[in-house]
């Protein structure tokens, strides 16, 4: 176990190093220079350009830039090109905003997927099963932003309530309880939208897993023993069907950043996904690279956790 942890740690470190090089190269070799963001800005004179390049080390060779960039990142000195604010501070602020969306979205996804998937599996072929199958395919195939707009327009026009942003603008003088509930309300739509796709996918997996499990011999044995249906499905069946999902849990970690770009943009949610998107448009390399790096770290941590969880829940697996 310990040797696996250590071995895996070093393996991932090497992987991370290669990821950092590749992501650095991809960003730097992409067309469009950071100095070309605002060519029409009359204030941006050629002298400014030189100063800009000097200030951000853009005049140095690529490998030196790479070194300086990661050195600054780890010492916390990396600054955004757009507003000269420390990147880590900005990321942390945005991370806290995204975290809520991520937690609520994940909770909804996982809480709803299991009941739906299990019921569909148990009542295989029923109207419920077929309609959830149909809905799942609709949700998977229709792009999320489309639903987002439909949902926003529907909710706003029907209930006349604000839904955009993290809270209603102009509420800062209101009583605390109203402010808190207002924030909760603003979480509802984006997290539901973020969860919809997840529910559609995950409930399919759950259904498939459950179907596979309930045709196993031990389920028949359990039935033969005279156990109640619920006992058979939820204790013997569900527990075994759960196995692959435990490992999946580790893999949702990177979703904190990547899963919410579209939702955050549509809802004007000041989160990390939106920050990344805006940074790409503004060629703000430090932000892009930092987010890239964080995602890479999260993915690696996620796989590590799922490896560990696998060992914990399935004693047959030894790494």
């Amino acid at each position: 176990m310990l040797s696996f942890t250590i071995r895996s740690f070093f393996q991932k470190l090497v992987t991370l190093f290669f990821i950092s090089i590749i992501s650095f190269l991809v960003v730097y070799l992409a067309p469009g220079k950071p100095s070309q963001i605002d060519p029409l800005n009359p204030k941006f004179t050629p002298q400014d350009l030189v100063r800009f390049q000097k200030e951000f080390n853009l005049d140095k060779p690529l490998h030196i830039q790479y070194y300086l960039y990661y050195k600054n990142l780890f010492t916390g000195q990396l600054k955004s090109w757009k507003d000269n604010q420390p990147v880590m501070g900005k990321v942390y602020e945005r991370f806290l905003n995204s975290l809520w969306l991520f937690i609520v979205g994940t909770v909804i996804t996982w809480c709803l997927s299991f009941p739906i998937g299990i019921s569909a599996a148990i009542r295989r072929g029923s109207v419920f099963d077929r309609s959830t199958t149909f809905l799942s395919y609709v949700l998977i195939s229709v792009p999320g932003f489309f639903f987002a707009y439909i949902l926003i327009i529907f909710v706003v026009k029907t209930f006349d309530v604000p839904v955009i942003g993290m809270q209603t603008f102009g509420m800062s003088n209101a009583e605390n309880i109203y402010q808190i509930m207002d924030r909760v309300w603003h979480l509802v739509l984006p997290s539901i939208l973020g969860a919809l796709g997840g529910i559609a996918l995950l409930s399919r997996y759950v259904r498939a897993q459950m179907l596979e499990v309930i045709h196993q011999d031990y389920i028949r044995t359990a039935r033969a023993k005279g156990l109640s249906t619920d006992m058979v499905y939820y204790k013997h069946g569900f527990r075994n069907a759960l196995l692959p999902f435990v490992t999946m849990f580790g893999l949702i970690l990177p979703g904190v950043i990547g899963g919410s770009v579209i939702t955050e943009s549509i809802f004007a949610w000041p989160g990390m996904g939106r920050m990344g998107y805006e940074a790409i448009l503004a060629r703000d390399y430090p932000i892009i690279l930092t987010l890239n790096f964080i995602v890479a770290v999260l993915v690696l941590i996620g796989t590590f956790i799922s490896d560990l969880l696998y060992m914990v829940v399935d004693p047959r697996i030894r790494l």
Binding site: V104, D160, V161, P162, M171, A174, M181, D182, W185, V188
Partner: peptide
């Protein structure tokens, strides 16, 4: 999550919890 709806100011009641 959904009960929070009842606390949010609507267009017709923009003063709800927020007279300012």
């Amino acid at each position: 999550l959904l009960q929070s709806f009842f606390w949010v100011p609507t267009y017709d009641e923009q003063v709800k919890g927020n007279p300012h």
